[in-house]
């Protein structure tokens, strides 16, 4: 794209810096959160420019989408306060401009220079060489679910753990009816939810040979669930202790762990799938991981332990 590309990158960088500044300094919280959501959106464009479509997908779905929904929903519970006016922020910071800006510029410059010197040899050739034995055609998926599958296992573990930790902090806020009673919302939810499911399935199928895969797919599906919840549907995850939800929530993690152990028992190392069944194993893992990510994002979004179902006993340990 040549010169136009340079201009494009420069504009993108200016917008991102401005949004980041707003997200961390804006006078009122809502402006900060909206800035952050737009920041995520434009970061996805930046990932596209940097030839990282997988990350762009994940950032669009998780970074801007799910995180944005989480932040916006948190706002209604954090009593919104008027912040300092913009002029006052500017004036209060005027003193630090003299002191901090040169130091900051020096730090940023040094970091940039250091990073610019990096030779970045990369593992591209090694990864491409090993791709044939990995069972998938797309290199990023191969890294995630075969070469570095342990990272992915632990990452889904962190998500399960986050759901457990969020639930442990107390009950979910009462599922209030939408504050704006509107006939459009439920209709919108009903119309859009099938589209979310369809797109998620499509992304999952794409994952084995092109950007996509379990993570964006799961995030899109989770976002669809959040949409239904917002549109006034009652949360269908109930906290019944012996009900299926807790088992389903941890299923993705459990299946990955199981695959890892089976690999070890089959005579190889932890997570070593026999080459013959690698592609099938990865497909199964992708489907369960995607489902699990979707449900976990939804579970985390409930912001507390969902209320127990009416028909189950409240027996506790």
């Amino acid at each position: 794209m040549g010169l136009v590309g340079q201009v494009f990158d420069a504009l993108l960088a200016i917008a991102l810096v401005w949004l980041a500044w707003q997200a961390t300094r804006a006078a009122d919280l809502f402006r900060a959160v909206v800035s952050f959501i737009v920041f995520g959106l434009l970061m996805a464009v930046a990932w596209v420019r940097l030839e990282a479509p997988d990350i762009a997908l994940a950032e669009a779905a998780i970074g801007a989408g799910a995180t944005g929904a989480l932040l916006l929903s948190a706002l209604d519970r954090l009593a919104p306060r008027r912040g300092r006016s913009w002029a006052r922020v500017w004036r209060a910071d005027a003193r630090t401009w003299v002191l901090w800006v040169p130091a900051v510029m020096a730090l940023a410059g040094a970091l940039t220079a250091a990073a610019w010197q990096l030779p970045a040899p990369g593992l591209g050739a090694v990864a491409t060489g090993a791709l044939e034995q990995s069972g998938v055609d797309h290199a990023v998926t191969a890294v995630l679910l075969n070469f570095r599958a342990l990272d992915t296992l632990l990452e889904i573990g962190v998500l399960v753990l986050a759901a457990v930790a969020v639930w442990s902090m107390g009950p979910a806020p009462a599922a209030s009816a939408p504050v704006m009673p509107s006939p459009t919302l439920p209709m919108l939810g009903r119309t859009l939810f099938p589209v979310f499911v369809l797109v998620a399935a499509y992304l999952l199928w794409r994952g084995s040979h092109a950007p996509g895969g379990a993570f964006p797919a799961g995030a899109v599906l989770g976002a669809g669930g959040i949409l239904m919840l917002l549109a006034g549907a009652q949360p269908w995850i109930r906290s019944a202790e012996h009900g299926p939800w807790r088992a389903i929530l941890s299923a993705g993690f459990a299946v990955m762990l199981f695959a890892a152990i089976v690999g070890a028992l089959a005579g190889g190392a932890f997570f070593e799938y026999p080459a013959a069944i690698a592609s099938h194993a990865i497909l199964v893992l992708e489907v369960t991981a995607g489902m699990s990510i979707a449900l976990l994002l939804f579970a985390v979004y409930l912001r507390g332990e969902p209320h127990p179902a009416a028909d189950t006993d409240r027996q506790r340990c």
Binding site: F30, L72, V179, M180, I226, L230
Partner: peptide, 8 residues
């Protein structure tokens, strides 16, 4: 939708 139903 989040904005309309939660934050607004």
């Amino acid at each position: 939708v989040t904005f309309v139903s939660r934050a607004w």
